[in-house]
Design a binder for these strands. Structure first.
Lengths: 196, 196, 196, 196
DNA sequence: CCCTAATCGAGACGGTACGTCGCGTCTTTTT
DNA sequence: AAAAAGACGCGACGTACCGTCTCGATTAGGG
């Protein structure tokens, strides 16, 4: 009679179900890959009704956004070393967050969805670009202050370069994603932006 | 009633159909995105029977592999300028190849498939990593000879860094993919590997 | 992803759909014949999904079994006349039941299916042989009691003979299936089994 | 340019292929039933090209018509005994012709096709009704002449009754089709038409 | 006896229907 | 009110055959 879809009241939402669905999705995606997992299977695995899932998430992408790792702001907290050390620390923590099997599958899946799902696009850009950039910017600015980084260096580009190299290896899986790689990466970028 | 599946003879294959199917797929993917295009729709658009498509391609991914741009070896031919100029030229040509609407959609789609389709993975790694790397390596080695690039520079990493930054922007579409960006990128990387 | 097939619960079955599918099938079979009607067309005509049909009927034959006429037990009730009159009455009612266009098409279709579908075979034998035989047996036994039918007459054979003549005309459609034919048939068979 | 389909010249027709196709069809139909046999399978089984089959037969029904048994006129030749003996002989020979596995499958299949294939209908009526009737008529007329059959007996009906009982058992397979059955059948019908 | 044209095998092609899976909506029953 | 269960209309899947078509390679007959 009213036409507009009633928003379900988030207060009555069952926390048990919420968790069970996300867990089930993560488990299935790790096992079978993003594209091969269906809402139907998630519901069965979670012991939930399909309607329950559709009530709270408009799409599989929306559901997976909740599982997609999100770098916390405090990830760059320490900062107790040289710029290179700090960069390695931050990149290492990003890696630990995203290089797990389900995270890789979800990121790859969302990359494809992002082309026609603005929500997925926004989340990916936020978590793979913006947040890492702001974390790295912090470190690099500190480097500028301490005179380790050239004042005129293109800091945002450095941040983007560092993370992009990670993400491509993450998505294509063609080469190892280990501390050694991070080290080489930081070394080269640092040469490009180091003072003097 | 019979049972045994036969490999079709490539000689009898209709070139007309081959082309029509690839064209139709590219057209539809540009319009609707990788995930939303179905084999059924491709067949209809191409005026072909579904079976004809399944006869020659085992999956949508396999079909799209044939549409996915492939950087030609001669892409690095010129090489008439400084290292930075040549790098900009090669990256610009790579961009021109991959930054079109259908190419972006296909690459994004294949990234998701690659996680459980070795064929897709192989093609992506080949076209986004190996070939560009070998093209850039050529340019950089020339740079080493001419004394523009440090003899101890990590050339492969430089190549990977340059292209990775492109591919992430290509996939996420969060920032422009233009000559200005390529210029900044090359400038920074060159600082990291330049002689002296 | 799941694997185990579940039996659907008959309680949740939609009566509306059940009826609509049977009606649609009968309509289409009358128009186009058993062999030319497809499950797909039945679904479309009924405004139903194919899966809904496959959920409740394993095959077109199974569906048509539900449309196939079934002589009710009370068909022989009256029995107020001579044996010949009663036989004519029963055969006439059988004819009215089976000589309609859709019934003929369905019976013919099921005859072919029956050779490799035990369910179809069982239903045909039941409705074309067993039930008519029991109906006619009733009439003929009454005749024996009343002294109109010879005590040693082969009553089951008489019943089979009477109906078989109908069914062949029904299936082949080479000659009329009217009251006049029933009359001749009953007259001749009665001569064979009449007392004295 | 001419529009009308060229009739292939029967003279150049390969007898080897003709036979191989009919054999293959009979073999497959015996094994799998009329409905489950496809032109494709017949071609494969016969080692023939599909086009070759379509060149000479417009449909599976047309092909099967050539395999369908055809009671020869000489089937009633002997006639050396009483009417009952001769009837039993003719019916027995008809049975031997039609009660084989492939014949039953083909007749059942053609019964269904006959509803929308005039060719099939014609053949069935001819071989199951007309020819047997004329054969039996011969026997019965002889009976009239010899005074064994009532002059006013409905001879055509008797013939139809006798054969119809056979065909129904043939098609439904619900009861045995042996000499004992033929005997009972003839006995009862003879009582209905015997002189005095 | 060879030449030429029809027939043959093979099978690719544009289609239709198959029987299945999953979508997103719905209804019913239970909590 | 939300949740488990699952039937429903729908659309796509990947497969089987349809009947037509093009290919060489026989192969039979009239020149």
């Amino acid at each position: 009679l009213c036409g507009t879809k009633q928003e379900p009241s988030a207060e009555r939402r069952s926390a048990r179900v919420h968790g069970a669905v996300l867990d089930a999705a993560a488990r299935l995606i790790r096992r079978h890959g993003y594209n091969r997992v269906t809402i139907e299977a998630i519901a069965a695995e979670a012991g939930a009704g399909k309607q329950t899932i559709y009530r709270w998430w408009p799409s599989k992408a929306a559901l997976c956004i909740e599982i997609c790792p999100s770098p916390p702001a405090k990830l760059a907290k320490a900062g107790g070393g040289t710029v290179a050390q700090d960069l390695r620390a931050v990149l290492g923590r990003l890696l630990r967050l995203f290089a797990t099997a389900p995270a890789r599958a979800i990121v790859a899946g969302l990359v494809a969805e992002a082309r026609h799902d603005p929500g997925a696009a926004k989340v990916l850009v936020d978590r793979l670009v913006r947040r890492p950039r702001s974390l790295l910017r912090e470190v690099l600015r500190r480097g500028v202050k301490r005179g380790q980084v050239r004042r005129t260096a293109d800091i945002d580009l450095a941040a983007e370069t560092l993370t992009s190299a990670l993400w491509v290896r993450l998505l294509l899986g063609h080469a190892s994603l280990d501390a050694r790689f991070v080290e080489r990466l930081v070394a080269q970028v640092m040469r490009g932006i180091a003072a003097k």
